[in-house]
Design a binder for these strands. Structure first.
Length: 380
DNA sequence: TTTAGGACGGGTTGGGTGAA
DNA sequence: TTCACCCAACCCGTCCTAAA
């Protein structure tokens, strides 16, 4: 079974899952937003960016550090990393346990202040991008690498707090009985503002409407060049002056008919398309397929995903275990398998709105290019 | 009449603090 | 160490009003 639009799908969720909520449509809408975030996150994991991701960290504006904005996902250079083996018990895996074990292994923790997050709760809920400590210029995070019999293999990695890319996921739904959607673009403006204040590569328009990029060097001289070409030049260069404070911004939006048709982009979409470096569009087909195959009508092997979703969105839920941060451990493993087996198909769920004529595979290779820069040298 | 904008309810996570 | 609690920031959907 498939749904011809996300709007229909939302109605189905209202009837089947969110009937208990005071405002069931609203609750279903929020959940759809969460799913867009989860799909984006697990695509990034499947692209091998797991250890580069932080979630909801404050990003300072370029040249204006007194204002910062929490961004959904940011990708950071890794300063150092190590693997750890710990005993699997019934209890939770806490930050302090991991830090103690690191200390035993002479992993220097100087300058780092501890956090109190649990990597794994005793209920079996995993914390994605789990921060266990932080310093002035870095985050120390931990993830589960594998489970080997009685032991769990962890990976601990320190990220430089200056990211090289940021992701934001957004969604706007259609109001009942109205064909054009919400009468506000505040959300788009908020996203656009953050996208345009994060990076050293700033956007300016010419009189004739072309988009140019300007970037200042540390001696306050600058370059101005046509935007998209300039961005590519920066990404594929080894010029410290260009890369130092450059942050690629990526927006991910999902369709609700009102936002977008191929000929007629809505104002919100136009604002976002010219503000993010990349604007991706998660299609109705993609979102529907994810919900149909993994939540509404899952095969037996995918059942833990449905279970985690349903238990997170019911009247008597104890704790959410289906968000970008909190994820049921079994659901996490099955999602990773599903994404890795169906990688090609899932990538086809995303359309590239901007830059025009570019393909998702180029985003992936640009992110890889940035990931593999010699950041130690660039950021010193 | 249509569209833009303001306000707000009900959610989420992050992060800090202090008591148990 | 753990937990409850609070605030900040952000998100989604809805309703109302003012401007075009």
């Amino acid at each position: 079974m498939s749904y011809e639009s996300v709007d229909k799908l939302q109605k189905a969720l209202v009837e089947n899952v969110f009937h208990y909520a005071k405002d069931s449509k609203k609750a279903a809408g929020r959940a759809l937003g969460t799913l867009v975030e989860i799909i984006t996150y697990y695509l990034l994991k499947t692209w091998d960016f797991n250890n580069y991701i932080s979630i909801e960290k404050g990003l300072k504006e370029y040249g204006n550090p007194e204002i910062s904005h929490n961004v959904e996902y940011s990708l950071h250079p890794i300063i150092r990393s190590t693997d750890l083996l710990i005993n699997k018990t019934e209890k939770s895996i806490t930050a302090s346990q991991i830090l103690k074990e690191l200390n035993n292994q002479n992993f220097s923790l100087s300058g780092l202040s501890r956090k109190t997050n649990n990597l794994l709760s005793k209920e079996g809920i995993l914390r994605n991008a789990c921060a266990i400590a932080e310093s002035k210029n870095s985050f120390l995070l931990c993830s589960i690498k594998s489970q080997k019999g009685p032991n769990i293999e962890l990976c601990v990695y320190e990220q430089n707090s200056k990211p090289f890319a940021v992701f934001e996921c957004k969604r706007v739904g259609v109001e009942e009985g109205i064909s054009k959607g919400p009468q506000t673009i505040e959300k788009a403006k908020q996203g656009a503002y953050v996208a345009r204040t994060a990076s050293s590569l700033q956007k300016i328009r010419t009189e004739s409407g072309e988009m140019y990029g300007i970037i200042y060097k540390s001696d306050n001289t600058f370059y101005i060049k046509p935007y998209t070409e300039f961005m590519e030049e920066i990404i594929f260069s080894n010029n410290t002056e260009l890369l130092r404070r450059f942050i690629m911004t990526i927006g991910v939006v999902s369709n609700h008919g009102n936002w977008f048709t191929s000929e007629n982009q809505n104002k919100e979409m136009k604002v976002l398309a010219q503000s993010y470096d990349w604007l991706l569009f998660l299609s109705d087909k993609g979102l529907s397929e994810f919900i149909d195959k993994l939540i509404m009508n899952p095969k037996r092997i995918h059942l833990p995903i449905r279970d985690a979703f349903i238990s997170s969105y019911s009247e008597k839920k104890v704790k959410n275990q289906f968000t970008k941060v909190q994820m049921n451990l079994d659901a996490d493993r099955i999602l990773l398998d599903y994404f890795s087996i169906n990688k090609k198909k899932i990538e086809s769920w995303f359309n590239v709105i901007s830059p025009k004529k570019k393909h998702l595979s180029e985003l992936k290779s640009e992110l890889n290019e940035l990931k593999n820069k010699n950041w130690k040298e660039i950021l010193k």
